[in-house]
Computed example of a mutant assay.
Amino acid sequence: MHYEGTVIRPPSEADSILLQVTLGCSHNKCTFCGTYRGKRFDIKKDDVIFEDIEFAGKHCRRQNRLFLCDGDALVIPMRRLVPILERIRDRLPWVERVGVYANAKSIKMKTDEELARLRKLGLKIAYMGLESGDDKVLEAIRKGADADTMITMGKKLKKAGIKVSVTVLLGLGGRKGSLDHARETGRVLTAMDPDFVGALSLMLIPGTELHDQYEKGEFQLPGAEEMLTELGAMIAATNLTDGLFHANHASNYLPIRAHLPQDKEKTLALISQALDGKVPLKPEYMRAL
């Protein structure tokens, strides 16, 4: 496989075929993210992509899921994305699901009919980085979309039959804005009603704007208990029809896997016990991105 630079995939795609079709992220302006800072966004050439699909056809026959890397493959124009999905279906007929990262801009670029067509070609899940439902936070981190746009784009994916997995970032509102960030994020998640939610805890990365703001005292990172309180407030404000809420990423202090709405009260009780010191938190040295 022809991999270039850092290749990132969601935790749930750990066992998937990783097909790199783009380089970097089409937005690449978020103040907290340093993943693609040294990589200029580009779409890889078709012959390279198709060669990698052929390689997967020979060597990845036990993997029934495939993820399109890098940061935002949905931005690829239909005239190129359709043949890629058709080639995957033709050469890798055992692949049951194709996944992709998607941001508000790339979703908006596709019509309802185009998204439905991509779904028929195997694109069954899209991962959206909501990060926060608080417009003040979204503007501060230069996300490129407000909360209402995020809601609209999430619903657009669901209308096409594509499952939606949303990532939110605990601590992103800082210490002062922690609870506003939590409650507004819960409100937006309720409106989007995604199939999956993944809550990560903010870890500051040297070289990013947010890390620089922290160094200057312009941003205060919430501590472990504050992030846990934030998580509780977020879950309390989140009402999903039928979804999984995960907070079991390596960055989190307390692993949580809740099926909402039925596990909501049990999960809030667990967080309360942890805040009371009855459930141990992950020590700082064990946390990771």
Score class of each variant (00 low, 15 high):
Ala126Met: 03
Tyr127Ile: 05
Met128Ile: 14
Met128Arg: 09
Ser132Gln: 01
Gly133Arg: 00
Glu139Tyr: 12
Ala140Tyr: 02
Ala140His: 07
Ala140Pro: 10
Ile141Cys: 02
Ile141Ala: 08
Ile141Pro: 09
Lys143Tyr: 06
Thr149Gln: 12
Thr149Ala: 05
Met150Gly: 00
Ile151His: 01
Ile151Glu: 01
Thr152Tyr: 09
Met153Ile: 07
Lys156Glu: 06
Leu157Thr: 02
Lys158Ala: 09
Lys159Leu: 10
Lys159Met: 03
Val164Glu: 04
Val164Arg: 04
Val164Cys: 13
Ser165Asp: 06
Ser165Met: 08
Thr167Asn: 11
Val168Asp: 03
Leu169Ile: 07
Leu169Gln: 04
Leu170Phe: 00
Gly173Trp: 10
Gly174Thr: 06
Arg175Pro: 00
Lys176Phe: 04
Gly177Glu: 03
His181Lys: 06
Ala182Val: 01
Ala182Gly: 00
Ala182Phe: 01
Arg183Gly: 09
Glu184Leu: 10
Gly186Lys: 12
Val188Ile: 14
Leu189Glu: 07
Met192Ala: 11
Val197Met: 09
Ala199Trp: 00
Leu200Phe: 14
Ser201Tyr: 10
Leu202Gly: 07
Leu204Phe: 15
Ile205Thr: 15
Ile205Cys: 09
Ile205Gly: 03
Gly207Phe: 03
His211Trp: 15
Asp212Leu: 13
Gln213Ala: 15
Lys216Arg: 15
Gln220Thr: 13
Gly223Lys: 09
Ala224Arg: 14
Glu225Phe: 09
Glu225Val: 01
Met227Asp: 00
Met234Ser: 10
Ile235Ala: 08
Ile235Arg: 05
Ile235Asn: 07
Asn239Ala: 14
Leu240Phe: 13
Thr241Ser: 15
Thr241Phe: 08
Leu244Gly: 06
His246Pro: 10
Ala250Tyr: 10
Ser251Glu: 02
Tyr253Val: 14
